[in-house]
Design a binder for these strands. Structure first.
Lengths: 324, 324
DNA sequence: AGCACTAACGTAAGTGCTTACGGAAATCGT
DNA sequence: ACGATTTCCGTAAGCACTTACGTTAGTGCT
């Protein structure tokens, strides 16, 4: 599921959909058992049944909705004979809702269906995690207190000004190497077989043959990666560079390329090339400005179907010498 | 919170409210950080950003909404320049959505705010219960499979035809003695001091002085209760009778009274009386038909403020003898 | 006592979805 | 090959809320 992959970011959508599902289930149960009740009415009607006559505002805060919602629903329920509405003697602003005799009668036989719904839902909740109800309560309290809100803003203040750090490969970041590259590969092409193998076994197919992998991190979150692959002794390929959409434009790509080049020099490599595709405009710009020079494509013996750009790294020093 | 007291019955409302809260939080975070994005757009925009161009239906199923919702949102986003819409060559029924260059640009800097929201929400979720996300996923799957629906109907089929069982007091049902009586007491009056004491210490104040308590159960759920209280040796009071709203009309009240009377005879009691209130019409009918006869109220030395009905049990046998 | 202020509510309009419906293109069965 | 069915989508209307606003009644301050 796509929404699940977005983790906490799409909770709003998921809760909304869950809400509709649950209303649907309850309504289907009512219909199937011949009960004329809409699940949306339950909070108001049940509140009146349990607590007796109550004002609009009182009900609204109790069930977590606005007074308008309660007022409008009350009008509807009044028309269909569920409840009575009279204005409070004593405080003429208030209008007091009360179950009608007929409404009370209709509700009085709901025990079986309510318990059935409750048991069915409880079973599902238990299967999903025994503590779901408690968790929801705490979450609601947390949100109401404004704490979540404040924390988000605090985090953002830190993340916005954070600069990317470049760090060498660590095992716990392994999955990010796959994830980040899969994102743009799936987007523009498909993941070729060679891609899949390299991405899923980076230690064996990149590091052990004398290569290197770097990650770009922002405040501990991996947001980009790049690999240096040794094809033949002294011949290296810059490959699998990706920065998460959403984190572009803070210089992570440039830093990654610089780290790769530095590593290439450290290993006394002779040739550093890369293959890419014309559709990756911003990346190509980065390569060019880092010292890569276009060559006739495709490279003889290219591994990739999608490759139509071939570049070789020519250090500034070399070019400068040429010009003089 | 009232909704929480309704446990699984009001999950729909709670999820809906949670959904609104989370959208609100996200939107506030966007606004506070100067990002022009509506949290409701996130699923569609993010899907396009990650997966690239996609059809309306594909997006709809991926994000769990209807194609109509996606189509309408797409129109809006198209008008405001976020995305382009063109019909698919190859299949003219499809219309393909794609982020515009401008839309892509706007989204490209969202990393910090998205991660901030994600962290804030994740922290709240962790505080509420580490497993909430997994629990939600399982719950969604369970609902989608139709299992919850089926179980509710099966439960209802059993509960609807179930007859109440009358059982003597057990410690594990203790709280129900309080809960069920509190319901009608709070509803019509307030819980007097003597009520509170008796209800919260039934063993000490009812059973030990030679009384009894019975519960009415339906398929294992306690739905009603009644107490026999020994005031003086041989003088008993029928009191604290209640049947849950929702379970009235299946004869639980009558069975409870019969059980009390039987217990009264078993203990060779001489007098069985009760105090009640005129507002409790249905209950009074039950008392009358069970053999209780009205006496001038209030009873001398009554314990209760609310009492304006006083009845004494006169077995049919006695009345029959009188008539002859 | 008078006057700003607040509280309680109803109404109108907006919103983010849904269901219902219909049209057009693709696919299937024969 | 061609009618029946299915797929894909857009539009319209509905729904369950919301926010915005206005009215009326109570409250607090001087």
């Amino acid at each position: 599921m796509f929404l699940q992959s977005q983790a906490e970011l799409a909770l709003g959508s998921r809760f909304r959909a869950l809400s509709e599902s649950l209303y649907g289930i309850a309504n289907a149960a009512y219909r199937a058992t011949g009960v004329e009740l809409d699940a949306h009415w339950f909070p108001v009607l049940r509140y009146l049944q349990v607590k007796g006559p109550a004002g609009v505002g009182e009900i609204a805060t109790a069930i977590g909705q606005t007074h308008s919602a309660v007022s409008q629903l009350a009008s509807k329920l009044q028309r269909s004979g569920w409840l009575n509405r009279k204005s409070d003697r004593g405080d003429a602003r208030r209008s007091v809702l009360d179950l009608s005799v007929e409404g009370e009668r209709r509700l009085s036989g709901m025990g079986p269906i309510w318990y059935a719904i409750r048991r069915g839902a409880a079973a599902a909740v238990t299967r999903s995690s025994g503590a779901l109800l408690g968790a929801l309560s705490k979450l609601e309290a947390d949100i109401d207190s404004g704490r979540v809100q404040r924390e988000i803003l605090a985090e953002h203040a830190r993340l916005r000004v954070a600069k990317p750090d470049i760090k060498p490969f660590r095992r716990e970041w392994r999955e990010h190497f796959y994830r980040i590259n899969a994102e743009w590969l799936e987007r523009h092409w498909t993941i070729e077989d060679i891609d899949h193998r390299v991405l899923s076994q980076p230690e064996k197919l990149v590091l052990e043959p004398g290569g290197a992998i770097f990650f770009a991190l922002v405040d501990g979150e991996v947001i980009g990666t790049c690999a240096l692959l040794q094809e033949l002794p002294g011949v290296f390929e810059l490959t699998k560079m990706g920065v998460e959409t959403g984190w572009r434009g803070i210089g992570a790509g440039r830093l990654l390329i610089q780290a790769i080049i530095q590593e290439f020099h450290k290993r006394r490599g002779k040739t550093l090339f890369l293959e890419s595709n014309k559709r990756l405009g911003p990346a190509l710009k980065l390569y060019e400005s880092a010292g890569f020079v276009h060559q006739p494509a495709p490279r003889p013996g290219s591994h990739y179907q999608r490759s139509d750009v071939y570049m070789i790294y020519e250090p500034k020093a070399t070019k400068a010498r040429k010009r003089t």
